[in-house]
Structures are given as C-alpha cells and as structure tokens.
Design a protein around this nucleic acid. Structure first.
Length: 413
RNA sequence: CGGGCCGUAGUGUAACGGUAGCACGAGUCCUUUGGGAGGAUUUAGUUCGAGUUCGAAUCUCGGCGGCCCGACCA
C-alpha cells in the first residue's frame, strides 16, 4: 500500500483526552479513531492488525475442532429471562423497539444464543463433543469505559463454546484450550509476560483460569509465583496469597491485563434451556459446556501497551499491519524510480509492504515509521541507489544492512 | 454510581471580564530532502442553554461530552 493512497494520517501529538499509552499511540499512528468513550473505529492499519490477530486465533480454534459461526449481536429479551441474566447482568445493554413492545439486548456474551441454537439442531449423543466459536463485536454497558482499547463498550471478541456429555471430556478439552491460549499469546508477542492465572470459578468449579499480561497499565491485581510462572487473581485471595501449584507464599503482587479467560460452565446454561440429549440407553443426559474468550481489541491494546518505546509502537511480526515499511528518501528521479520498482517487485512477490512515497523530509518519514512500528524498515536513498541496494533495519535494533531487491524479496516472500 | 479535573480551528496550546492569537496540519507557489526543513500566501475555532454585566472563552447555574481515582466488571 502506498501511503499517498492511505486516507489516514499520522499525528505529531496525541489527543489530550487520551491518557492511555495504547490509545495515544494507536490514534497518533492512525490505527484507530475514537467515536465516544469506549468506542473506536478501526482504520486501515488498525484493521490489518486486527485481522492478523484474528487469523492467528482462528488457526488455533480450528485446530481445536472449533467450527466458526457468527451469531447475532441483537438478541431477544426472552432468552435472557430464561437464564435470569436480564435482571442480574449489570452491563447488559437493554432497549425497547421503537415500533413494538419487544425488548432487546445487545450481546455482551452469547450463552443465551448459542445454547438454543445448538439445541435446535436436534443432536444425538453421537454428535458430541463439539465446539463452535465466533469473532464478533460485543457490547457492554460499562459504568466507566477507560484505558483506550483495554475496557471499551463495544469490542471485538472471540468466544468459543464447547459441548460435552462427560465431565472428563470437558476437563480434557479445557486443558487443550489452555495450551492453545498459551500458544496464541506467545505468537502475539506477549508470551514473556503473560501468565496463567487462577481465578474464581463460580458455583460449579474450583477455579477458572485467566491469562493475565503483566503491565502497570493493567487494572487487575495478580499474585505471581516466579518459580511456577503462574499467578492468582486477587479476587480469590483471602489473607496470604499462596501459589496454587507449589504452595509457595513468596508471591509478587503485579498489575495485569486480562487478555483471555477460560471457564467451565458445566450445565449452568444448558439446564436453563433444558438442553438434554438421549444416550445410547435412551436415558436423558445433561449437556456440559465450557466457554473460552479472548478480547481481540483488548489484546491489540495490550500488545501496544507492552511493546512500545519512546518513538512509537513495536509490533511483533505475527500481527504487524505490514511485513516491511519501504521509505523513499528524497525526491530525485533516481530514488523514486528505484523505490517504485522495488515496491512493485515486492508486491508481485507477495510481500506485504507499506510504501512511504510521500513528499516529506527524511526525518518525518523516519519518525512516522518508528511511530507505526512495522517490524522492518527498508530505506531507498541516493546513497543506497548508487549501490543498487536497499538498507534494511529492524524496528527494535540500531544496526542496518544493505541488500539487493531480490535478496529482500527472498527474505520476506 | 461517588469523587476530582477539564471542554477554544483537524491537532496541540494562549488570551486580567474589554480586538479570539500562536504552532503544527491542510491548500497554492518557490527553494529544500539520512532523524519531524525554509520563505510567501490562504484556510479554519470559544460544547450547548440560561443568568450576571455596558461588555463573557473568562464569573454563576444547568445540560451534554471527555479524562482520571474509587466502586463495579458471570
């Protein structure tokens, strides 16, 4: 993509009403734009990141046998009455149709939709276990939206729901999801500071698990066991915190962002809809469920929050909006034609490259490139054109190397 | 929801109760180009409503909106 064709623009200064690092950088770099508190538009660069995060999550969900669907965000009151959450779910957006008497909710989560959906398939015990997931916008009427993308009122979330006939099967699947989540956060570039965290499990399970990324920007408090690399959420700590794995009481208190959670629902929602199936003896059996969430927009904010320097964002290659950022320095015909040709060749080779073909000073292009944070910067200038080379530099390193266009192609294709 | 701070041009920031200014951006022209270039010129603003006053961006009240702390967050 040529920057002269990109309708968004990087800003020199952060808007004064965004204190959070993630929002300030993402807005300055032109990835997102705020519509109102807790509601953001995703612009071409931001959408690319979101799509790459989605791709990464999708491949792990598909490996877990998850079948992708999309359920409605607009939901009928009746389903929420059945689970009792119409009255008890504080953050539920509720409203009445302008024409009729019907009441609706905007989905903050989808148990109320997925259970009847699955129930209507008239399944037999032979169809179990299975899992469905979606990547979709969720709505939560937060009392206080804050911290940019970290706590918003409309946000993109992946929610996976698994269905089982035995507890052992649910337990086994839960463990597989736990491993998949660990891989996802590793691939997303926050593996080094993201911890499996024991949290409250509600009425039925001893624990649920959260994935918490340690950063001062977080709003959760966790107690981290350095030895076991697991943590406990403050919500389940009474008195002295203790490591649930080794029993150690030498835990360190940290602020963290909850980027994912996994939860055994067991029969809580299936029984609310009286969802049962007959087993091979004709006896009716309870359906057990698990639910597993990852907030994609929150994850994007978390990556920015934990991977930036004074100059801007440092995207991991796995979710970066482009593989490389090509800069043409100076407007001489030699530079422009060399850079144009390099851009065309890289595109033809299937390399995702953002090409700064604007009329702007070298300093401004460098500053914008650092701000946008694409992992590799490829510079074409009079200096490099003389040697028929391009200068390549990693966003987070100082050293540079000269290479030809074909070498560059080979590296990224 | 309780508390605090705050709403001036696309962005940032000034203006004692008395002419709304500056910078960046954007447009045009010229000169520049390895770390946010220079000159000329143009463009665009007081969140809304009421009140006090000869006069309100400025003071008072209310609405709307934003940020922060707390509470809340199956």
């Amino acid at each position: 993509m040529r920057e002269t064709k990109l309708f968004t623009r990087a800003r020199r200064e952060a808007p004064k009403d965004e204190a959070a690092v993630n929002a300030a950088l993402l807005i300055r770099a032109g990835f997102v734009e705020k519509l109102m508190a807790g509601v953001y538009s995703f612009l071409p660069l931001g959408l690319r990141v979101m799509e790459r995060i989605a791709r990464l999550i999708r491949s792990e969900m598909n490996a877990l046998g998850g079948q992708e669907i999309i359920m409605p965000a607009l939901q009928p009151k009746e389903n929420w009455l059945k689970t009792g959450r119409w009255e008890t779910y504080d953050a539920l957006f509720r409203f009445t149709s302008h024409y009729g008497k019907s009441d609706y909710a905007l989905g903050p989560t989808h148990e109320e939709v997925v259970v009847p959906l699955v129930q209507h398939q008239n399944l037999s015990y032979k169809d179990f276990p299975f899992a469905v997931y979606q990547i979709q916008n969720k709505f939560r009427d937060e009392l206080r939206a804050k911290s940019g993308l970290l706590r918003s009122r409309e946000f993109l979330m992946k929610d996976l729901y698994s269905f089982h006939l035995t507890e052992a099967d649910l337990d086994a699947y839960y463990e597989r999801v736990k491993e998949a989540y660990t891989r996802i956060f590793e691939k997303a570039g926050i593996g080094n500071n993201t911890y499996l965290t024991f949290a409250s499990g509600g009425t039925f399970s001893q624990y649920s698990h959260e994935f918490q990324t340690v950063t001062d920007a977080g709003e959760d408090i966790i107690f981290l066991c350095p030895k076991c690399s697991v943590a406990v959420n403050r919500e389940i700590v009474e008195g002295a915190a203790q490591c649930p794995v080794c029993g150690s009481k030498k835990l360190t208190e940290r602020k963290a962002i909850e980027v994912g959670n996994i939860f055994k629902l067991k029969a809580k929602y299936s029984s609310a809809f009286d969802f049962r199936v007959k087993d091979e003896t004709g006896k009716e059996q309870e359906v057990l469920m698990g639910c597993y969430g990852i907030g994609l927009s929150r994850l994007m904010g978390t990556i920015v929050e934990t991977r930036s320097d004074g100059k801007g964002i440092v995207w991991p290659e796995s979710v970066a909006p482009f593989q490389a950022h090509l800069l043409a320095l100076g407007e001489t015909r030699a530079v422009a034609s060399f850079a144009d040709k390099a851009y065309d060749e890289l595109c033809k080779a299937g390399v995702d490259v953002l090409y700064d073909d604007r009329t702007a000073s070298a300093g401004e292009k460098f500053a914008d490139a650092d701000l946008k944070g694409i992992p590799w910067r490829a510079v074409v200038s009079e200096k490099t054109v003389r040697e028929k080379k391009i200068e390549l530099k990693r966003r987070d390193e100082e050293k540079t190397m000269l290479m030809s266009v074909s070498e560059l192609k080979k590296r990224f294709a």
